[in-house]
Write a protein that binds this DNA or RNA. Structure first.
Lengths: 253, 253
DNA sequence: TCAATAGTGTCTCTAAGACATTATATC
DNA sequence: GATATAATGTCTTAGAGACACTATTGA
């Protein structure tokens, strides 16, 4: 099978971003409004084309910074910053009506941002709770007429669902939940991250025992805070641990 | 950002396959010998170009059947057959010296095959233990002269390593280890699969208790076999369970 | 004082790890 | 018989789940 560039079908390659954060006790994703056809006026995931001499991860990091101003932390992902990882690749032949586009989706976990979005105007980007972006066909709401236009453009609903499921399972066996927190955070704040991502309530005592008892998960930073009200809480930073063993198992049902 | 096909860099999109099986108590991968430059004569992962109107998963299944004769089981992967899933996408600008190629790697888990490879000639394809395909730079063996030519072509060494790690972690929390087995298998055969993939020895008593006690993992097929010698062993088929909860944890170290 | 959150102590129960022995086939 | 593998029983221990109480702030 000889290589002849002109003999093989040309593809466009894009990166799409599932940017997740926790705002007001809800898991939220970044959505942008499309300005052109197709799906004009509909919400979509941020993303763009990969440049000719650009790596896939670099393209994702560039798009992230263009859309949000967020910069990915150095060490291949997180530590005390934004986490970025490849999610999956979507390439159904008809996923874009104009041409053959293969999209390499990436997952970003970010702490809550003060401003909705730094780059771009406010009208065209927003944080939206994932449950409003992922209304399934079975959900009842208004008459069906309005339903379709609320769905994300292209196959972005599927990409978002896959990204959310990845995040939900990944915080089970990794220390990545700290990527949703500010550099210094309390055990209660970390617990609320887990509760928001999983959509369940956790026992504060057992959670505290688990996270403080897992070596390398949390390191005390020395200070305390009362920003959540109540008794002052000890502040922690993310430790060096990347995997949790044994994992933090999601409650069933 | 308007879409103009000619304004965006053209990519070729390929699928590469990490096909894993367990042979003689060792985890093995399918490798094919390259006939042309670059990397002529070197071993590589099987794969090929995605056709113009072909889905990524379909292209992977087609390449698999062309190279091995294996057909992917119906229900989105396994059940009682070959399992195929998307692994990751590799798109470094210089990963192919001829042109910009983005490769969507897929992972295949297959039972031990009688013939080495059905399609293609025997000289150009083989099952090789993954540890021989993944000799790292740190390993000592012969003088370095021979080392480089034993490495897989392109970035296929990295792809294989990622696929092996995916398989190792996935049999922890899913029932996918049965994809390495024949339709009917014994508990001992399943245990040897785990031992080969993880490269560790497991306690037969605890393993038996675990797999037979996990609902939906195994269903007795009624028969017995002595193909492993010794006392007749009960035969099982894969149950409907896809996730193991609690997971089968890999021993540490 | 009340309300809010943080932090700890302990009992129970599930399940994994570490053991030895019996069972049933082939050679 | 010897040898091979299968299958089961039980003790111990790590760790999760389910509980109540005390501690320390701000309003």
């Amino acid at each position: 099978m000889p290589y002849d560039p002109s003999a093989y079908p040309p593809f466009a390659v894009t990166v799409d971003l599932v940017v997740l954060t926790v705002r007001k006790h809800a898991l939220c994703a970044l959505a942008v409004r499309r300005g052109e056809s197709p799906f004009q006026g509909r919400w979509a995931l941020p993303g763009g084309f990969v440049a000719a001499s650009e790596d896939l991860g670099s393209a994702a990091a560039r798009e992230l910074e263009e859309e949000t101003g967020l910069r990915v932390g150095e060490s291949a992902g997180s530590a005390a910053g934004v986490h970025l990882e490849q999610l999956a690749t979507y390439g159904a032949p008809d996923r874009d009506p104009r041409m053959r586009v293969v999209s390499v989706a990436h997952l970003v976990l970010a702490p809550d941002l003060p401003a909705p979005v730094s780059g771009g105007d406010a009208q065209s980007a927003r944080w939206a709770p994932v449950h409003t972006l992922l209304l399934e066909a079975g959900d009842e709401l208004e008459p069906e007429s309005d339903r379709d236009s609320d769905q994300l453009a292209f196959d972005h609903g599927q990409i978002l669902a896959d990204g959310v499921e990845r995040a939900r399972s990944k915080i089970e066996y990794s220390a990545l939940a700290t990527a949703f927190c500010t550099p210094e955070f309390t055990v209660g704040e970390l617990r609320r991250v887990y509760e928001a991502v999983w959509g369940v309530a956790l026992d504060p005592r057992n959670f505290h025992r688990k996270v403080t008892g897992t070596p390398g998960f949390l390191v005390p930073s020395g200070g305390t805070t009362t920003r959540q009200g109540g008794r002052p809480a000890q502040l922690f930073r993310a430790g060096g641990a990347t995997v949790l063993n044994p994992p933090m198992l999601r409650p069933e049902i």
